[in-house]
């Protein structure tokens, strides 16, 4: 049952303990990365500087421009040069600040803020440029990109000052959100993806395929939203639109609701996969650390930085 559960205050969220956990998380991530770092490791992202790493036989699928003609002249065989990218890219963190992210489940708000801070921390530690955005009815004006761990306090201030409310217009926000090519990097969208209709999110996602960089959709939702504990006569109020709806909710309706919700999630997941967009569900009752490690272990460029 949705309630405004008293949760931790913002100061409690961004306390020293949380930052210590982030550092520990970062160390764990780096160790995991080193263990996996064997042989060729490529990334679809391109960087600004490149260092030679190795040669490899040319295949028909390779770009002929990468052929080392000097080596061909000497050995009479086609090789291509492999480079290890030294990436310095932007980390764009988009936080949904609509009312549905704060009410009736404050956990969603806390989770999304913690996630935004953690990703920012990762970006700052990796010496990337971190940009923070808020979306609701429209995309909010972002502060200047931040670089270096010294800007962590500014990240925390930004998160602390975010105001949740209003409606979500996914279509409009995703259309308007267009980072310049110069700010190529990783884009994290933290949202519950609830729009004005069930299919709005699915249709809005196609705008993300044009974004410059690696896109991650993190859908934050509360377990109650997946399995609502409702029965009998109820009057529902949409926290964003204040629209009311009176229903006689039966167990059969509950099953139909759950099926519809799962269909909604699968639609989004399929829409992301078909556009090579990473998608992760983030239930607020699951352990934050585990989910975060999962997120970064899924081939994110962020995890391979530093």
């Amino acid at each position: 049952m949705p309630t405004d559960q008293p949760t931790q205050t913002e100061d409690e969220i961004f306390d020293a303990e949380f930052l210590d956990r982030l550092r520990a998380l970062f160390l764990r991530l780096r160790k995991r990365k080193q263990l996996k770092k064997k042989g060729i490791q490529s990334t679809p992202a391109s960087g600004f500087t490149r260092e030679f790493k190795d040669y490899r036989n040319y295949t028909a699928k390779d770009d002929y421009r990468a052929i080392d003609w000097r080596l061909y002249a000497r050995l009479d065989r086609l090789f291509i040069r492999l480079y290890e990218e030294i990436q310095e890219f932007h980390v764009h963190i988009v936080v949904d600040t609509s009312a549905s992210m704060a009410e009736p489940f404050a956990d969603k708000r806390i989770t999304s803020l913690k996630l935004a801070v953690a990703l920012s921390y990762m970006g700052l530690v990796g010496n990337h440029r971190v940009s923070l955005y808020e979306i609701g009815e429209q995309v909010g004006d972002p502060p200047p990109p931040l670089k270096g761990l010294g800007n962590l306090q500014r990240v925390l201030d930004f998160a602390r000052n975010l105001e949740f409310g209003g409606i979500t217009d996914l279509e409009k926000c995703f259309r308007e959100f267009q980072p310049s090519r110069r700010r190529y990097g990783i884009i994290f969208v933290i949202s519950d993806l609830y729009g004005k209709s069930v299919d709005e999110a699915k249709e809005a996602i196609h705008h993300a395929s044009g974004w410059p960089g690696e896109v991650h959709f993190i859908q934050v939702h509360h377990p109650w939203e997946e399995k609502p504990d409702l029965d009998g006569e109820i009057e529902l109020i949409d926290v964003e639109t204040q629209e009311q709806r009176r229903l006689w909710f039966t167990p059969r309706d509950r099953k139909r609701y759950e099926a519809r919700y799962q269909e909604f999630i699968h639609d989004i997941e399929y829409a992301c996969q078909s556009r090579q967009i990473d998608y992760q569900r983030w239930r607020t009752d699951y352990p934050f650390d585990e989910l975060f490690l999962d997120l970064l272990s899924r081939g994110s460029a962020l995890s391979s930085g530093s």
Binding site: P2, E103, P104, V198, I237, E240, L247, Y257
Partner: peptide, 19 residues
């Protein structure tokens, strides 16, 4: 009758017509 705040009504709208 209980009044319940929900994040979105879009899923409930697919269940039954409104009264």
């Amino acid at each position: 009758s209980k009044t319940v705040n929900v994040s979105t009504l879009v899923f409930f709208k697919t269940l039954a017509r409104e009264h």
